[in-house]
Amino acid sequence: MNRWLVPGLILLLLALSGTSLLAGTIWLSPGRTLAALLDPSPDLAQLVIVEVRLPRLVLALLVGGILGLSGAVLQGLLRNPLAEPGLLGVSSGASLGAVIAIYYGFAATFALATPLFGLAGALVTIGVALLLSRSGGTLSLILAGVAVSTIASAGVTLALNLAPNPFAAYEIMTWLMGSLSDRSWDHVLLAGPFILVGAAMLLCTGRGLDAHALGERQAESLGVDLSGVRLLALFGTALGVGAATAVTGAIGFVGLIAPHLVRGFVGHRPGGTLIPATLAGAAIILAADIATRVLRFGPDIKLGVFVSVIGAPFFLWLVLHVRRTVA
């Protein structure tokens, strides 16, 4: 394992975090930012930093981190380099929950209804996927995940189709694109605990995932409790990614890309990718969020859209690369 990888990623995150506080429609000087963070007396700069940019920064770190971590765990668990949280239906489940909240107007009466419904949706979909795949192995888990994911996506499309007015449809579309703008400390407090608990569960799977690289039978013979590892991975993903998707909307590709960016540096060990992939995921989301604020082409580009536009070509490269190395 390359011992500069983790310190390097942490330095990168610190640099990005600093930039994230300074950057935006109004650029603040480092001195003013620092003063705003230390000095409790409220002025405009202090308000922008503490109430707008800081929660946004914390949320970006949490959401990016859990997406990267969960992607790394799922790729190890499913022994598939193309696995990502969305594959198990967590993201579509969270989206469906959130869409229901918006569609029926709960979101209008109670601000946190959208993330709460999103979280419930994520937990329900992964619960159903787990029930469906209870007796089978990895393949039946993937198939069950794809099935519930498709059903949840169908529900989202149906809601868009039946939207009572163009505003509801617009609101649903905007939410689905994924964004970190207008998020407050309330969102951090709502999602944070779930993301942290989910991350703790996911981090416990490292040793088991390493052994799982040899296949299910060998991993079991090495004393690994595979069903325990699977439960930790799935519920960790449901809690963490479910909560993340619930507050930010669907952000794809990070869970897919982050583990691959670091895999070569840790000798391809599935367990070794967990922490670097977490940091890489956080860095990707943070960098993308800064980019959406700094690069302006007319209307603002949503974070999820930005990540997809960058991520999709990477995905294509990955498919070609995997085919080349396997063939």
């Binding site: 022994r79 052994a211 895999r263 000798g267 060990r269």
Partner: peptide, 17 residues
Amino acid sequence: QVDWAISVERVVALGLT
């Protein structure tokens, strides 16, 4: 089978899990 491009030394070390 080994799924990922893990080094031979690492694979042998997995025997000590």
